[in-house]
Design a protein around this nucleic acid. Structure first.
Lengths: 155, 155
DNA sequence: ATAGTTTTGTTGCATATGTAACCAATTCGG
DNA sequence: CCGAATTGGTTACATATGCAACAAAACTAT
């Protein structure tokens, strides 16, 4: 039978139910909202914020270390760090024992910005998750981790 | 006490546990894998594929309609459609009752490509979800929908 | 020592994407 | 009807991003 959906023996495909599509939409919606907020209130992009978050938590590190902890490639990290240096939020000094490496550390100003963003970020997360019960949050967390593990394995 | 994590009274923030970060990583991992596959096997980008999917399912439509059904903005849709026209997968004819509107329809060639991609897409989705049980898939689906609903509301 | 390889990070180029300006067709208000 | 606002879609420009080539430093192994 010929229905409103235009299929003559065609395989049926519903984009709006397709997991990669839905994941992409949700992640982009969330990311864009956060990006606008960080940009507006702190003048930071998301890559910059990720670098700040890692430096703020783990202390001085080299670009390669930041790459691993942020899942960003080295080009993105390099550019984000250079913008942060321009803004005076971090500084970099050569590692004397290996002068290819530049050790980046957060500045006092950077620490101050970092400490202002963290509560905003956590509040944002809380707001997103506020639609779920505690049990649902835990479950979503668990499923996300499971998916992430296999996504990386296959990719 | 001063631990390995570099915090002196600083708010603690764990990037790897931050939901927006995790969502972004997972969505990008999945999207990139799919994008490579569609590009390699069918020469389509993801925006192009979304347009094809909607035309294939709902039949001829105008760009504005495609925008709504794909959650892409009109610039992206315009560009994707023009590339599809260049490739001969869709064609466009002016709507005589409103000559601003261009009605896009899938061609025979486009339909053939569409019908080849759909099983590949579904198989990809199946593989991603293969780590979850049926019940978990249903639950993840439900939670995703809940999150999506509020994300759009707030955003 | 020294040539070849690996590591670290940057730069160049090509592509992707969003915002805003824009053009053309249509509708709306009087 | 006619000028103003609206709508459908494209183009221009500014950014963002990924890949590959690169330069410099440091290893490796003879």
């Amino acid at each position: 039978m010929s229905s409103a959906t235009h299929d003559r023996d065609a395989p049926h495909f519903a984009l709006e139910a397709f997991l990669p599509y839905r994941l992409s939409i949700l992640a982009n919606t969330v990311s864009n909202a956060i990006a606008r907020e960080y940009q507006g209130r702190f003048g930071l992009t998301i890559p910059e914020w990720r670098v700040m978050a890692v430096l703020g938590r783990f202390g001085p590190d080299v670009a390669t270390g930041i790459c691993e902890r942020t899942a960003m490639d080295k080009v993105m990290v390099s550019r984000a760090m250079n913008r942060l240096i321009d803004g005076g939020l971090v500084n970099r000094s050569a590692d004397d024992s290996d002068r290819r490496r530049g050790i980046t550390r957060i500045t006092r100003k950077g620490r101050s910005v970092h400490d202002k963003i963290v509560p905003v970020a956590l509040e944002h997360e809380r707001r997103i998750l506020s639609t779920l019960t505690t049990a649902e949050i835990a479950e979503f967390d668990r499923l996300l981790a499971k998916l992430q593990a296999t996504a990386f394995t296959n990719g």
